Amino acid sequence: MHAQIALFDGFDPLDVIAPFEVLHAGGLHAGGALTVELASAEGAREVPSGTAPLSLRATATLDADTADVIVVPGASGRVEERGEGDDTIPRILARTLQTRLPDVLREACADPDLIVATVCGGSLVLAMAGLVEGRHAVTHHLGMDLLDATGVVVVDARVVDDGDLVTAGGVTSGLDLGLYLLERELGPRIAHAVETLFAYERRGTVWCARGLEPTI
């Protein structure tokens, strides 16, 4: 299994590093059954985060034909404009729609065998591109109204599993997302081994689109 974590200008570093480290450790514990790399729609390049001056290097081109899992992070920055011309998270996310990223994600979302996962505002990138209307998803609590406005079925949970779409809430939920993907795809023993290694206990609720529906 091969995972790619998408980088775009203005990404949130923790949205990327948390799932990267978890998935990388899971691959090591699983004898190489999972590999992970940083990728951008434009190919290998230095990608500036929204937390200046930190940047990360994409070593590959984001490719729906190559990846089995694509993880989309959110953006880092101010939520609201404080001064004229301030770069805000909504503006950063909107700019991703003018890049090649939505085209790659459109291919990914059309492939039921490929898992598209998001951290924080990553689900808003998909929603703003019109790719997850009618699907169950979550984002950072400050973006839930916007997610709802795009036609997404918003679920207030730490991780939301809607089959080939798996989304996670606020910034640190990237750890929980990574561990959940390990458990789902490689088994609970691999996930537990990585939890132990990282001295981290998963928190919050994982919502799945299966089982009985509540009647109340």
Rank of each mutant, 00 (worst) to 15 (best):
D87A: 14
V69A: 00
L23A: 05
T215E: 13
R100P: 08
H29N: 04
S40W: 13
G178T: 06
H192Q: 13
A157W: 06
E42Y: 02
L126A: 01
M1W: 06
A168W: 04
G204I: 15
T167K: 02
L147P: 08
T172K: 02
L124F: 09
D87V: 02
L23S: 15
G174T: 11
L97C: 05
R82Y: 03
W207P: 00
V69K: 01
V153F: 05
H2N: 15
G169V: 05
L34D: 08
A157S: 08
A94K: 00
M144Y: 03
L34G: 09
A3K: 08
A157C: 00
E84S: 05
E21M: 07
E133C: 10
F20Q: 05
A157I: 06
E107V: 04
T172F: 07
A58Q: 02
L177A: 03
L182F: 11
A108P: 10
S49E: 00
L14Y: 11
G211N: 10
T118A: 04
D103A: 15
V155H: 12
V166D: 00
R189Q: 14
Y200V: 07
G27Y: 12
E37T: 14
L175S: 08
V160D: 09
D65P: 05
L126I: 02
A25R: 06
E46L: 09
T150W: 01
I115A: 08
T215D: 13
H140N: 15
L97M: 15
V71F: 10
A137V: 11
D68I: 10
E213A: 15
D63H: 13
V138I: 10
T51C: 11
A191W: 14
F20H: 10
L101V: 09
A25N: 01
R57A: 09
V116L: 13
G32L: 08
G121N: 15
A52S: 15
T118Y: 13
I92P: 01
E133L: 06
E84H: 04
A199F: 07
V138R: 03
L175K: 08
L14G: 03
V125L: 08
R203P: 02
V71W: 14
A199C: 10
V71G: 01
A67N: 04
V166H: 04
G43N: 07
P53V: 05
A52Q: 11
E195L: 13
C120M: 06
A209H: 10
D9L: 00
R203V: 13
L7I: 09
